[in-house]
Simulated assay, not measured.
Amino acid sequence: MRAILALGLVLLLPALAACAGDERDYTVPTSLCGTPVDSELLEPLLPIGKELGRKGGFSGQEGPKQICTVRVDCTAWLVTHGEWREGGYTALDAARDRRGRGGEHAADGGKVAYWDQGAATVVPCRSEKWRAQTFSVVVESVYRDGRKGDIDALNAFVESYGKAVAERLPCA
């Protein structure tokens, strides 16, 4: 039995090593799921690692709700959520809806709302198709080993990303 366990560990170690790293071997992207981003604002939100992958779509045309997941070395690290909303919906509403546990704060005159591992903004955009007046954008740093995210970096990125998303939305 010990020989089988030892053999299993020997076979598992290379797989685990493939998902670990001690420096950034990937290039910080200039787009996330089709939306251009400022790589300088994105960089502080991403960890060191070997490989970066993105999955999802985010142009406001794919559906009423959209998700883009950024993975670094086999682990989801950053997730962006977009959703068509009614008029009067605020960044703080988006943060509360996404988080739902309290601890959300408004910033930048209410343009941005944030919590310990995420930030939100809302852009005006009328859509008859989705019966909406606004589009909410939420960025969450989902895997932080229990550590608090960089709030200033999250706020700067979500505001910039929200503007980039707004430019791609099919507003009426």
Results as ranks from 00 to 15, higher is better:
Leu11Arg: 00
Gly49Thr: 05
Gly162Trp: 04
Gln117Arg: 14
Gln117Val: 14
Gly63Glu: 12
Thr27Val: 15
Trp115His: 12
Val28Gln: 07
Val28Ile: 10
Tyr26Trp: 08
Leu46Gln: 04
Asp25Pro: 00
Trp77Arg: 12
Gly8Leu: 15
Gly109Arg: 08
Ser39His: 12
Asp97His: 07
Leu9Ser: 04
Pro14Phe: 06
Leu13His: 04
Val139Asp: 00
Ala17Tyr: 06
Lys129Cys: 02
Val10Gly: 00
Leu5Gly: 01
Gly57Arg: 05
Arg131Lys: 15
Met1Glu: 13
Lys55Asn: 10
Gly118Val: 11
Ile151Val: 14
Val142Met: 00
Tyr143Leu: 01
Leu42Gln: 06
Thr90Arg: 06
Asp93Arg: 09
Asp108Asn: 14
Ala6Ile: 13
Pro29Trp: 02
Tyr114Gly: 05
Thr121Gln: 02
Pro124Leu: 07
Ala113Thr: 13
Gln61Ala: 15
Ser160Ile: 05
Ile48Pro: 01
Asp73Ala: 05
Lys163Ile: 06
Trp77Gln: 11
Asp150Leu: 04
Leu92Lys: 13
Ala156Met: 10
Val10Tyr: 01
Glu167Leu: 15
Ser59Cys: 08
Pro64Trp: 14
Pro14Glu: 02
Ser127Arg: 13
Asp150Pro: 02
Gly146Ala: 04
Gly109His: 12
Cys19Asn: 08
Pro124Met: 03
Asp38Ile: 10
Ile48Cys: 02
Lys65His: 13
Trp84Pro: 07
Glu51His: 10
Asp73Cys: 11
Leu42Asn: 04
Val142His: 00
Cys171Lys: 06
Leu46Phe: 04
Arg96Gly: 11
Pro170Tyr: 06
Asp38Met: 10
Ala164Cys: 06
Arg54Ala: 10
Glu51Trp: 13
Pro64Gly: 15
Val112Ser: 02
Gly118Ala: 12
Ala119Cys: 09
His81Asp: 07
Gly149Ile: 07
Val79Met: 01
Gly102Phe: 01
Thr75Lys: 03
Thr90Ala: 03
Thr30Asp: 15
Pro124Gln: 04
Val123Gly: 04
Asp93Asn: 15
Glu128Phe: 11
Trp77Ala: 09
Tyr114Trp: 14
Lys148Cys: 05
Ala95Pro: 05
Leu11Gly: 04
Lys148Trp: 07
Val123Asp: 06
Gly100Phe: 12
Ala17His: 04
Tyr161Trp: 05
Trp115Tyr: 15
Lys111Met: 09
Arg54Ser: 07
Ala95Thr: 13
Asp73Pro: 04
Pro14Leu: 06
Ala18Val: 05
Pro170Arg: 12
Glu43Gln: 11
Leu32Phe: 00
Cys125Leu: 06
Arg71Ile: 10
Glu159Gly: 12
Leu42Trp: 01
Lys50Met: 03
Gln61Arg: 15
Ala166His: 05
Arg168Val: 09
Trp130Gly: 01
Lys163Cys: 03
Val122Asp: 02
Leu32Thr: 00
Ala164Asn: 09
Val137Glu: 01
Tyr114Gln: 08
Arg96Ala: 14
Arg144Trp: 02
Cys171Asn: 03
Asp150Gln: 01
Val70Ile: 13
Ala119Gln: 04
Ala166Tyr: 01
Lys65Gln: 15
Cys171Gly: 03
Gly34Met: 10
Ser136Gln: 09
Asp38Arg: 10
Ile4Asp: 10
Asp25His: 11
Asp73Thr: 08
Leu7Gln: 11
Arg126Val: 14
Leu154Asn: 08
Ala3Val: 09
Thr27Arg: 14
Leu92Pro: 05
Lys55Trp: 01
Leu5Ile: 13
Glu51Arg: 11
Ala156Gly: 03
Gly60Asn: 07
Val165Asn: 02
Val72Thr: 02
Glu43Pro: 02
Glu51Asp: 09
